[in-house]
């Protein structure tokens, strides 16, 4: 009897062993993401903050307020890049959100089924197109057009960047807005229609306000995509070495392209300064991420309900 119990105990322990090992493996895997984020932050920040400390330190104030980037003469200013990045993002959002939202309304509320079956894959394709192709399109189509109409005779400009970024944020905004519009309960629409509102009034006065949190999330994600976009922007921004943009026809040099332009050959302080540019970019992304977390909320509640 005793012997039997011992045996059973042994078997159950033998069974338990892999259970624990695998639970450990799963936990470790999940922690890889945490470690990666920490590693990225540590490496990028430690290298990016290096030039501002120790002997021969570069003034951080000069870095953050500088209007000129001239590594050859040890001048590193990123303020005009920050302005460029923000203006480009702002432009893309101002254009992209209304267009995207209205397209989402069309798909969710107005379009017949057959048309939806055509448009949705098209938008998915738009989302899947690599940014280099957007860059090629910008360079081959948008820049020449701006070349014609610009008073400066220069196609590579803030306007070109805004155009391409608008196209690039569209799929994000459309698909998320559409999902949130579809999530609005039918009874809202029925109530609105029943009170005598027209279909269009219902859409703009009832459905869109009800879907606003999803639309807001879409907008923030769009901002993230626009500010982080590199390759497409690099080909069409002009990448001037200094000076604030004065109009939509001005050349700009967003933060991302500053890194990408010179990463291949930079070394020493020059390379550190590229990482410092990365730190600034990272800070913007952090703000966006935290906003996003606040918006979607309930981070911890998505676990298994026990």
């Amino acid at each position: 009897m005793n012997n039997n119990a011992y045996k059973e105990n042994l078997i159950s322990r033998r069974k338990e062993y892999p259970e624990k090992v695998f639970k450990g493996i799963f936990l470790l895997s999940a922690l890889v993401s945490v470690l990666s984020v920490i590693a990225i932050i540590i490496f990028v920040f430690s290298k990016g903050l290096q030039p501002f400390f120790g002997e021969d330190a570069y003034s951080f104030l000069e870095f953050i307020t500088g209007l000129k980037w001239d590594p050859g003469n040890d001048v590193y200013g990123v303020f005009y890049m920050i302005v460029g990045s923000l203006l480009a993002t702002l432009g893309a959002i101002v254009l992209g959100v209304p267009i995207g939202l209205l397209t989402a309304v069309f798909i969710a509320e107005l379009a017949p089924k057959e048309l939806v079956a055509f448009i949705k894959p098209a938008i998915e394709l738009l989302a899947g197109i690599p940014s280099v192709i957007y860059g090629a399109f910008g360079l081959g189509v948008i820049v020449p057009i701006i070349n014609e109409i610009s008073p400066t005779g220069q196609g590579e400009s803030l306007l070109a960047v805004i155009c391409v970024l608008t196209i690039m944020v569209l799929p994000t905004i459309i698909s998320l807005s559409e999902a949130s519009i579809r999530a609005v309960p039918k009874s809202y629409r029925e109530a609105s229609l029943g009170l005598g509102a027209s279909k269009t009034q219902t859409i703009f006065k009832t459905v869109i306000p009800a879907a606003r949190s999803g639309i807001l999330t879409a907008t923030v994600l769009g901002i993230g995509r626009a500010i982080g976009e590199t390759m497409a922007v690099m080909m069409i921004a002009g990448n001037n070495i200094g000076g604030l943009p004065t109009s939509i026809w001005s050349k700009v040099r967003p933060l991302t392209t500053n890194i990408a332009m010179e990463m291949g050959y930079a070394s020493g302080r020059h390379q550190d300064m590229l990482f410092a540019t990365g730190v600034i970019l990272f800070l913007f992304i952090m703000v966006i991420n935290i906003t996003l977390t606040k918006l979607t909320g309930k981070l911890g509640d998505k676990g298994r309900s026990k």
């Binding site: 984020v37 590199t230 890194i259 981070l299």
Partner: peptide
């Protein structure tokens, strides 16, 4: 289970998703 570890992991994943690819390139 719900708690600090889960929140931390989710926060990390969300952050990873938001980091632009040029930062991955730098890293």
């Amino acid at each position: 289970k719900r708690g600090r570890i889960l929140r931390l992991i989710r926060f990390a994943i969300q952050n990873l998703a938001g980091i632009p690819s040029i930062i991955y390139g730098l890293f």
